[in-house]
Each structure stands twice: as C-alpha cells, then as structure tokens.
C-alpha cells in the first residue's frame, strides 16, 4: 500500500498534518482490521500477563481472592534465600549441562551418517530418530514411569549379574538415578530437533569441497576437521543456543515422572514455580504462594536472558576468532 501513502502525502501538506494522518489511517483501515486479531491476542494474553505478573511479585498471596498483603520486594529476597529454589536451579543447570552436550554430539554423529547422499532410505532413518520429537512429553513420562516401576528389576538383575551393583536400585525413587533417568529421557525426546538442524547445516556445505579435498589426499577425519567443522560453525552456534534455551524450560517430564521428588532431588525451576503457585510439592506441605512464584519466575526469566546474551556474545567471539585463524 505504498502507493496510497504516496498519494496522500501532498494533500497532507496542504491541509495540516493531523488531518493528513487521519487520511492515512482511514486509507489503511483494512490493514488495521487484519492486524487487530493478532494484536488483541498479543496484548491480552502475552503482554498484559507479563506486566500483571510483575505486580503480583509485590504481594504475599495464596492465589485465592484479591492480593492484599503488600510486601514490597520481600518476595525477591525470599527467593534469593530459599534453599529449595537454589536446589531447583542447581538441578536445572545439571540437566542442561548434561543434556545439551550429549544430545548435540549424538545428533551431529547421526547427521554425518545420514548426510551421505548415496545412503539409501536416509529419509526413513531420519524419520525413525526424529519421531520422539512429535510425541507428548507427558505421555513419554507416563510410559517411562510404567517401564521403570514395573520392570526396573530386570535392569537390576542384569546389573547384578554383571557385578556392577550389589543392591537393587529403586530407579525413580532414588535421588541420583531419578535425575539420570530424566536426563536420559530428555536427550532421547528432543534429539530429533538437533538432528534436523545439523542435517540442514550440512546440506549448505558444497560437495565440491569434499571432492577437492579428497583429490588432495585428505582422509575422512581431515575433511571433518577442516571442512565440516569450520563451515558448520555459524549454524552450530544457533543450534547450541536453541538447545540450551529449550533445555532450561524442562517441566512436563519432571512433573509426570517424579513430581520433583524424591525430596526435591529432581525439582527444576519450572516445577518449583508450578508447585509454589498451585501446590503439590512432592513430600512436603509448603503453602501456595503466587507472589513468591511470580518473583521466582521473574528472577529466573532475567537470569536466562542474561545467560543467553552472555552465551551469544561468547559463541560469536569464538566463531570469529576461530574463523579468522582458519
């Protein structure tokens, strides 16, 4: 509609800018109508709730009725001194620090195998490994829980016969193993995203480069080290960022598999916030506190933004330095 704006401009100059603006608005009335539904949803259900939840952080409120007990910034200082929050933050970092690198290495290895254009059935294989991505984390959690609670002893028998353990492990009831299981399922569930991302990145590398390198006598590893790695770097940065951001949001798996238990051993920040706001902490009776939940959520949101910016700067610097050397 640039034509409309250009046509309106000369008249706007002669009759004053206010009526000119009105004319431009009237001329673009259908544009407003088409953007309006999106804008209403955005304002009412995305932007307003962000602002409103900031308001809750100043109250001690159990979520019933109107918030009335104004406490200023006390909720933020309570979050800072809450051992359960820091424990949940530590568990979340533990989850991210294990899921991201393991998942990325596995996905890249698989992508390198599937990127071979002469490999038959490569789309079929990609679909096999991608499939868990489209399934619900809640249902995956139910199935895994079913497997471990009924047949965890089969694994115990194997481990014992191998002499790896001398006592039966109560998989999801054991603080250490419960977290390991959540991490393992987390890796399995979303690996497909990274597989597809890496395949997309690999396909941007021209085949001629590999052919030329091979003519010069470069082996498979040399090709990987000197062609694949440098050319995959910029896409790789995006993949790492997406993977980290996604992993920090872990909730469904934890809620269904362990509810944060046993004894907060698998409580992550998102399940901690949910339990604060809606009750149901595993094995304890902490009162609902929406103000505290909102404060924790804001603090976590800020932390993640700072973390994402630092990470993006760091990765970009890394790409630039290595890129300059190569």
């Amino acid at each position: 509609m640039t034509d409309v704006r250009l046509a309106a401009r000369p008249r706007a100059l002669s009759t004053g800018t206010v009526s000119g603006l009105w004319r431009r608005i009237a001329a673009a009335r259908w544009s407003y109508l088409y953007v309006l539904p999106m804008l209403v949803l955005l304002l009412a259900f995305v932007i307003y709730p962000i602002i409103a939840s900031l308001g809750y952080t100043f109250y001690r409120w159990d979520g019933i009725g109107e918030p009335g007990d104004f406490v200023g910034l006390a909720n933020f200082s309570r979050v800072m001194t809450d051992g359960i929050f820091w424990g949940a933050l530590r568990n979340t970092f533990f989850y991210v620090l294990l899921v991201v690198p393991i998942q990325l290495v596995l996905a890249l290895a698989l992508a390198l195998v599937l990127n071979n254009r002469r490999l038959r059935l490569r789309t079929f294989y990609r679909t096999l490994f991608f499939l868990p991505v489209v399934t619900s984390a809640a249902v995956v959690g139910v199935v895994v829980q079913l497997l471990f609670s009924n047949f965890g002893d089969v694994v115990n028998d194997v481990l014992m016969s191998l002499g790896l353990t001398h006592e039966y492990i109560d998989w999801l009831g054991d603080p250490n193993f419960a977290m390991i299981i959540i991490i393992g399922v987390g890796i399995w569930h979303t690996l497909g995203y990274n597989l597809v991302y890496f395949l997309a990145g690999l396909q941007t590398i021209p085949d001629e480069l590999y052919e030329a390198a091979r003519l010069d006598g470069a082996g498979a590893f040399a090709c990987f080290r000197h062609i694949t790695v440098p050319l995959l770097r910029s896409v790789g940065v995006v993949i790492v960022l997406l993977s980290v951001i996604g992993s920090f949001q872990v909730f469904d798996l934890v809620q269904v598999l362990t509810n944060g238990g046993p004894y907060f051993a698998t409580e992550v920040v998102n399940s901690y916030i949910y339990h604060l706001a809606f009750g149901g902490f595993s094995g304890s009776s902490v009162d609902r506190d929406v103000g505290l939940a909102s404060a924790a959520s804001f603090f976590y949101g800020l932390l993640l933004i700072v973390f994402a910016v630092v990470q993006a700067l760091f990765l970009r610097a890394l790409v630039r330095r290595r890129g300059g050397r190569a």
Partner: peptide, 26 residues
C-alpha cells in the same frame, strides 16, 4: 504500510526478549 506499524512490530518482537513472569495466573 500504515501509521503505527513500527509500534506493532516492536510489540511483537519485545515479547521474545521480555522476561516472562508467572503469566498463567493473570
């Protein structure tokens, strides 16, 4: 093109960067 388009684009983009509180309650 329409007056206020820049504002709409800013609003859309801002939601990606704003820290989200516990928005489910509001």
């Amino acid at each position: 093109e329409f007056p206020g388009k820049g504002l709409v684009l800013v609003a859309v983009a801002a939601t990606v960067f704003l820290p989200h509180g516990y928005t489910i309650i509001p």
